[in-house]
Amino acid sequence: MTTPEPLLALSGINTFYGQAQVHFDLSVTVGRGHIVCLLGGNASGKSTTMKIILGLVKPRSGDVTFDGASLLGLTTPQIVRRGIASVPEARRLFADMSVRENILMGAFVRNDRDAVAQDLDKMLTLFPKLGQRLSQRAGSLSGGEQQMVAMARALMSRPRMIVMDEPTMGLSPLYVDRVLELIRTINLDGVSVFMVEQNASLALEIAHEAYVLQTGRIVLSGPARALKDDPRVRDAYLGGSEAA
């Protein structure tokens, strides 16, 4: 597999929360049109990596470039306008707004109302279940349905890349499969995906490439297929029975 020209590149990132160092010289690239996943256990620095891409946390050193231009120094809204959408951890819907309003909030950065309306229809074909739920409070949906809304919301900005923080967390097995399938569909439409996951076996199913993060350092990286068979990944993340 050839690595395409990178769309997103984090290079030499060092991050601190107060005295504690979270990232040690972290470098990650996401190729154009690829699905890249960042694997790691609790407190490995996964979610902070997402926050750095979105400008919610500033690294002490290093650079983040998107399509060749640095994102450092930009505010989160500015970064979103560059074409990065997010599906945050635990979905973070606007609980008291309706499902329709939530999905439309995803198009906040756009001003083409007619095209937005068309995209809303498109989302309803992609996520047919949401059609009956449009006027319901987002907070009243089940976890899986909320994940669908969060993904639709992210797609509404017509992003070039979506970053997802543990998209399968807390979902029933049925929805886990559905979410992975959707991520693949989204990716086939040309959207690059960077996802952070704890569930390595699932993530490696759909990813092109993967990185393994351990207490702030990248310890392994490469094509997902290769990592999947790597005994070190198996031992650390997949557990004996699943890998067998």
């Binding site: 919610l56 973070r92 439309l104």
Partner: peptide
């Protein structure tokens, strides 16, 4: 209004609103 939506979204989840591009 768009700004009105931004106000409502920000009051429910400030960080998520920022990730939608709300200033």
């Amino acid at each position: 209004s768009k700004l009105g939506w931004a106000v409502r979204a920000a009051s429910q989840d400030r960080d998520a609103a920022m990730q939608m591009g709300v200033d």
